[in-house]
Deep mutational scan, measured.
Amino acid sequence: MQIFVKTLTGKTITLEVEPSDTIENVKAKIQDKEGIPPDQQRLIFAGKQLEDGRTLSDYNIQKDSTLHLVLR
């Protein structure tokens, strides 16, 4: 499925993911596309910070959802 990741600069990254993918996995995909190390990434969805060990389906993230990427 496709999800979107919006950065603070207003750029939107499109990712191909599975509901069973972990947040860690998603961060690795963002690193592949953007070169941002996962340890600098914070992903936010519906006002919640997403934890590495959980999956997209744990957070009820569905296709065409938009996550927000904050760098630390």
Rank of each mutant, 00 (worst) to 15 (best):
M1A: 03
M1D: 03
M1F: 07
M1L: 08
Q2G: 14
Q2N: 04
Q2L: 13
Q2A: 09
I3G: 00
I3S: 00
I3Y: 01
I3A: 01
F4K: 06
F4E: 05
F4D: 12
F4I: 11
V5W: 01
V5E: 00
V5G: 01
V5T: 02
V5P: 00
V5H: 00
T7I: 04
T7F: 08
T7A: 04
T7M: 12
L8S: 06
L8A: 12
L8E: 14
L8M: 13
T9V: 12
T9I: 13
T9N: 14
T9L: 12
G10T: 09
G10A: 15
G10I: 03
G10E: 13
G10N: 12
K11I: 15
K11E: 08
K11T: 07
K11L: 12
K11R: 05
T12A: 08
T12K: 09
T12Y: 10
T12M: 10
T12L: 04
T12H: 15
T12R: 08
T12P: 04
T12N: 06
T12D: 10
I13Q: 04
I13H: 05
I13W: 04
I13V: 13
I13S: 05
I13T: 08
I13A: 03
T14Y: 03
T14P: 13
T14M: 10
T14D: 06
L15Y: 04
L15Q: 01
L15M: 15
L15P: 00
L15N: 00
L15V: 04
L15R: 00
L15G: 00
E16S: 09
E16A: 04
E16L: 15
E16N: 09
E16H: 12
E16Q: 11
V17W: 02
V17Y: 08
V17H: 03
V17L: 09
V17R: 00
E18G: 12
E18N: 12
E18Q: 10
E18H: 13
P19W: 07
P19Q: 14
P19F: 14
P19G: 04
P19E: 11
P19Y: 10
P19H: 12
S20E: 15
S20V: 10
D21T: 11
D21W: 04
D21P: 00
D21Y: 06
D21F: 13
T22Q: 08
T22P: 14
T22K: 09
T22A: 12
I23S: 06
I23H: 02
I23T: 07
I23G: 02
I23K: 01
I23W: 01
I23P: 05
E24P: 15
E24K: 13
E24M: 13
N25V: 13
N25H: 09
N25Q: 15
N25A: 09
N25S: 07
V26T: 09
V26D: 00
K27E: 01
K27A: 02
K27I: 05
K27S: 02
A28M: 10
A28R: 09
A28W: 05
A28T: 06
K29F: 11
K29P: 00
K29S: 08
K29H: 07
I30G: 01
I30R: 00
I30S: 01
I30A: 02
Q31G: 15
Q31T: 13
Q31I: 03
D32G: 14
D32A: 13
D32R: 04
D32Q: 08
D32H: 07
K33S: 03
K33I: 11
K33G: 11
K33L: 04
K33P: 03
E34Q: 07
E34N: 11
E34W: 10
E34V: 06
G35Y: 06
G35I: 03
G35Q: 12
G35F: 07
G35H: 09
I36K: 03
I36D: 03
I36E: 02
I36H: 12
I36R: 02
P37A: 11
P38E: 11
P38T: 14
D39M: 10
D39E: 09
D39Y: 15
Q40G: 08
Q40L: 02
Q40N: 08
Q40E: 15
Q40M: 12
Q40S: 08
Q41A: 11
Q41M: 06
Q41K: 02
R42W: 06
R42E: 09
R42D: 15
R42G: 07
R42T: 15
L43M: 05
L43N: 00
L43P: 01
L43S: 00
L43T: 01
I44T: 08
I44N: 11
I44L: 08
I44G: 09
I44R: 07
I44E: 12
F45D: 02
F45Q: 04
F45I: 03
A46R: 09
A46T: 06
A46W: 11
A46M: 02
G47F: 10
G47E: 06
G47K: 03
G47L: 09
G47N: 13
G47T: 06
K48R: 13
K48V: 14
K48G: 11
Q49S: 06
Q49E: 05
Q49V: 05
Q49A: 10
Q49W: 09
Q49Y: 09
L50M: 09
L50R: 01
L50D: 00
L50I: 09
L50T: 04
E51T: 03
E51F: 04
E51W: 05
E51I: 03
E51S: 09
E51H: 15
D52W: 03
D52Y: 03
D52Q: 10
D52T: 12
D52L: 08
G53Q: 13
G53E: 12
G53H: 07
G53K: 09
G53L: 08
G53F: 13
G53M: 05
R54V: 14
R54Q: 03
R54G: 08
R54S: 11
T55Q: 08
T55M: 03
T55Y: 14
T55P: 08
T55G: 03
L56A: 03
L56F: 04
L56G: 01
L56D: 00
L56Y: 01
L56N: 01
S57Q: 14
S57R: 05
D58G: 11
D58T: 07
D58E: 07
D58Q: 11
D58A: 12
Y59F: 05
Y59V: 03
Y59S: 06
Y59G: 01
Y59W: 02
Y59I: 03
N60I: 13
N60D: 12
N60T: 08
I61H: 00
I61T: 02
I61Y: 01
I61K: 00
I61F: 03
I61S: 01
Q62K: 13
Q62V: 12
Q62M: 08
Q62P: 09
Q62D: 05
K63V: 05
K63H: 15
D64I: 03
D64G: 04
D64A: 10
S65T: 15
S65V: 09
S65W: 07
S65I: 11
S65Q: 10
S65M: 06
S65L: 03
T66M: 03
T66Y: 02
T66K: 04
T66V: 10
L67S: 01
L67K: 01
H68A: 02
H68V: 02
H68K: 02
H68L: 03
H68W: 02
H68S: 05
H68R: 02
L69T: 01
L69F: 02
L69V: 06
V70Y: 05
V70W: 03
V70R: 02
V70P: 01
V70I: 06
L71M: 12
L71E: 13
R72Q: 06
R72W: 08
R72L: 11
